[in-house]
Structures are given as structure tokens and as C-alpha cells.
Simulated scan of single mutants.
Amino acid sequence: MRICTITVRGGSKGVPRKNLRVVAGKPLFGHSVAQAVATGLFDEVVVSSDSEEILALAPEFGATGIVHRPAEMASDTAGKVPAIAHAVRMTEQRLGLSFDVCVDLDATSPLRTVDDIRTAVEMFEESDAESLITGAEARRNPYFNLVEEQPDGTVAVSKKPDDAVLRRQDAPRCFDMNGSIYVWRRDSLLEGQVVFFPSTILYEMPAERSTDVDSEFDFRIVEWLMGTRDDL
């Protein structure tokens, strides 16, 4: 059995009420809920939030369950993974069952497609991985053109390779996590409550589907890109 969670905070420092802001005809978080439902993969699609307004709207986009997110899991400093694990546990208690695969869709990453979700879950289930993340190829490579400041104020390539890398194409491929889709084995999520394990794998997405909304500038990019698509 599979569960999909969408964990949505009511507050936001960068863009006030950003998860409720309408983009392409839906509140931002509503796109992730609707995408989860459209995949046909999940036995439960659950929205977890500290906002009563968000929880009241969630069923309009197909959510089959809601979870009241505790205040201590909804602060600016709270991690996301404990909130996901809490949503899974609360849903299992409500239904009296246990899920096998847990998927989380980030509410601020509406540019993914339904096929992205299906393919990521299929890739995960065909593997022995404990978790899967998504990301796009990094624009800066730590072996070639990403530098970090040294204690004396000088800068150097962030990761020094054994042999000099003269072309970016010769450096190991690196990725920017886009936070769009996360997948876990149920026990790995609930017991570890972390994203990375020795067996973690990555599903690669293109840059044009990898923007995470965290500012007004991001909103402008997402609104423009969504306006060019016919699958919404």
C-alpha cells in the first residue's frame, strides 16, 4: 500500500500565505494534491497542516485525509521529515493499517508532472533503496566551478578531485536537490526520520520542472512556466 503526504505550513516568511496563493487556477498546495490523485498510485492522499483554512480546502483537490500538524512541527525551525512521519502515523492509526511506501510531494514544487511522480515511484519500487530524492543537474559543479571560502579569506574549488578537471564535462555529475518528490520505505521513514541513507537514489528532473517557490521571484517564474503548459 502507498500513501502520499503533502505537508503544508500555514505561515511563510518569504511570501506570506504562499501555500494559499492562487497560481494557474489553484492555491499553490492544491496542485500537489491534485497531481497525487491523478497518478492513481495512492491508497491515501493526506494533507498535513497547522492551518485550518488549508485543511478545509484540501478535500476540494482530492485529499482523502487531513492531519492536524502540531505547532511544534510547524515553526520556522522545525524539520519537514518529522511532520511527514507524523502524518503517516496518524493516518495509519485512523485507518488501522500499515503502508509499505511513503511518498511526499512538496507543496511549493508545482512544476512536476504526474508522470514524474509515477516514474519516480516505479524507479524506487524496482530498486532496493531505502529512499529516493529528486533533483536537477547542478549549474555549478563543486569539482570545477563551485568555490568555497577558506579560513584565511581565499577561495578554492569546493571539492578537490584527485586529478585536475579541465572541463566541466569531465567532472562527476552533481545535482541540485529540488525537493519535489521524496519516497521512503515505511520503516525507514518512521524509524530513521531522515532523507539520506547509504542506498538513497535520485530521479533526475529537468531544470524547467525544478523551481521551488520560496520568494516573489520564484512565483513569477512558476506562474510564467505554468502558463506555457497544457497539462495543468
Rank of each mutant, 00 (worst) to 15 (best):
F124P: 06
A120F: 10
R229I: 03
V67G: 02
D116I: 05
F29N: 14
D115P: 00
V45R: 02
L202W: 07
A38R: 15
Y182F: 15
T77C: 04
R229Q: 04
Q150K: 11
D170A: 09
T64N: 07
K80P: 05
T154C: 02
W184N: 00
V147E: 06
L28C: 06
F29E: 08
A34S: 15
A58G: 11
A120E: 09
E122H: 14
I133H: 05
P142V: 04
V121F: 01
G40I: 12
F217I: 12
R140Q: 12
P151Q: 09
V101M: 06
L55I: 11
M73W: 10
E60G: 09
T5C: 15
R2I: 07
G14I: 07
A164M: 13
A56H: 12
N19H: 15
D162R: 13
I54N: 00
G79S: 14
N145K: 01
P142Y: 01
L97W: 02
L55C: 08
G40Q: 09
E148Y: 04
G79V: 01
D163S: 11
G192I: 01
P27D: 00
R229V: 04
V213K: 09
D170L: 05
A24Y: 01
S109D: 04
D170T: 08
Q193K: 14
S188T: 11
